[in-house]
Amino acid sequence: MSLEGGLSRRRCLVGGAAAAGALAALSLPQAAHAGAQIEEPLIDSVRTALSSAVHNKAPPVPEFSSTEARLTYLRWLGEMSERLKKKIADWPTRKEFLQTAWYEAKRSGLDVSLVLGLIQVESNFRKFAVSSAGARGYMQVMPFWTRVIGDSDPAKLFHMQTNLRFGCVILRHYLDRENGDLYMTLGRYNGSRGKAPYPNAVFANQRLWTFVDRDRSAA
């Protein structure tokens, strides 16, 4: 499935202030030790699709087609919130993060547990994490992406929704390029394509964020 088609067909109706000022207030950014995406030429149609995806202004506000879908989401939110409490202590921030991660993952046709596992490996859920290569935020997005498909303002990568949207759109783009091969996709995202440590780490952490809806399966 193409990125553009995946985004339009999988759009899921769901639901940080600008971080530049907050970033300036930090004396030392928190370091991250993951890899980084490598800039590659993009054909015009791909560039346009990616740019359109990241510029869509729809807010991540949850809407559901049925009561059962809404209840499933709320059960997921409650369980993930408990798991994430040690990483993000503040409930409103934790709720906003999970809601946004869920929305952006579904919007891009990705498994939210994969996205959360990737975030744990990349930044350990630190909003202002910066790698030695300059990748930024929760999903460690390289600043060149804001020039290629954004508005050339890398400071926005410290904004929660912006970072998660860029990260999910880029991950979906790589998944399409690798014809659905998650192992190679994760390596490409990390800048270590074909090497095992990073994909294996993400898969291991993905298991920590897998959700089994016991209420629904028991019905």
Results as ranks from 00 to 15, higher is better:
residue 82 E to V: 13
residue 39 E to C: 06
residue 76 W to D: 04
residue 34 A to Q: 04
residue 29 P to E: 00
residue 32 A to V: 03
residue 32 A to C: 15
residue 77 L to W: 04
residue 73 Y to R: 09
residue 34 A to N: 10
residue 100 T to D: 02
residue 13 L to S: 14
residue 75 R to G: 11
residue 31 A to Q: 09
residue 78 G to W: 07
residue 43 I to Y: 14
residue 31 A to I: 09
residue 101 A to Y: 06
residue 95 K to N: 05
residue 15 G to F: 13
residue 98 L to M: 04
residue 54 V to E: 08
residue 17 A to F: 13
residue 63 E to C: 05
residue 49 A to M: 00
residue 45 S to M: 12
residue 74 L to E: 09
residue 59 P to F: 15
residue 50 L to D: 00
residue 92 P to F: 02
residue 70 R to P: 00
residue 95 K to W: 05
residue 12 C to L: 14
residue 60 P to C: 14
residue 97 F to H: 03
residue 58 A to C: 08
residue 67 T to L: 13
residue 16 G to L: 07
residue 12 C to Y: 15
residue 89 A to Q: 10
residue 43 I to E: 15
residue 59 P to S: 09
residue 48 T to R: 11
residue 51 S to C: 06
residue 40 E to L: 11
residue 18 A to F: 15
residue 26 L to Q: 05
residue 14 V to P: 14
residue 55 H to N: 04
residue 21 G to D: 10
residue 85 K to G: 09
residue 48 T to D: 05
residue 39 E to T: 01
residue 20 A to K: 08
residue 68 E to W: 11
residue 84 L to Q: 04
residue 77 L to E: 02
residue 63 E to G: 08
residue 36 A to M: 05
residue 99 Q to S: 10
residue 42 L to G: 01
residue 64 F to H: 04
residue 24 A to Y: 04
residue 18 A to G: 08
residue 24 A to T: 06
residue 56 N to F: 06
residue 57 K to T: 15
residue 87 K to Q: 11
residue 56 N to S: 08
residue 35 G to R: 02
residue 49 A to D: 07
residue 71 L to F: 13
residue 37 Q to N: 07
residue 72 T to Y: 07
residue 103 Y to N: 09
residue 92 P to Q: 00
residue 83 R to F: 01
residue 48 T to N: 04
residue 72 T to I: 08
residue 16 G to A: 11
residue 58 A to W: 11
residue 67 T to E: 12
residue 53 A to E: 03
residue 79 E to I: 14
residue 55 H to T: 04
residue 45 S to N: 06
residue 62 P to E: 03
residue 49 A to H: 05
residue 24 A to R: 14
residue 71 L to E: 07
residue 42 L to A: 01
residue 84 L to A: 03
residue 21 G to K: 08
residue 64 F to K: 01
residue 99 Q to E: 10
residue 81 S to R: 05
residue 21 G to A: 13
residue 51 S to Q: 12
residue 64 F to S: 00
residue 87 K to S: 14
residue 81 S to P: 06
residue 82 E to M: 14
residue 72 T to L: 12
residue 23 L to Y: 06
residue 20 A to I: 07
residue 39 E to L: 02
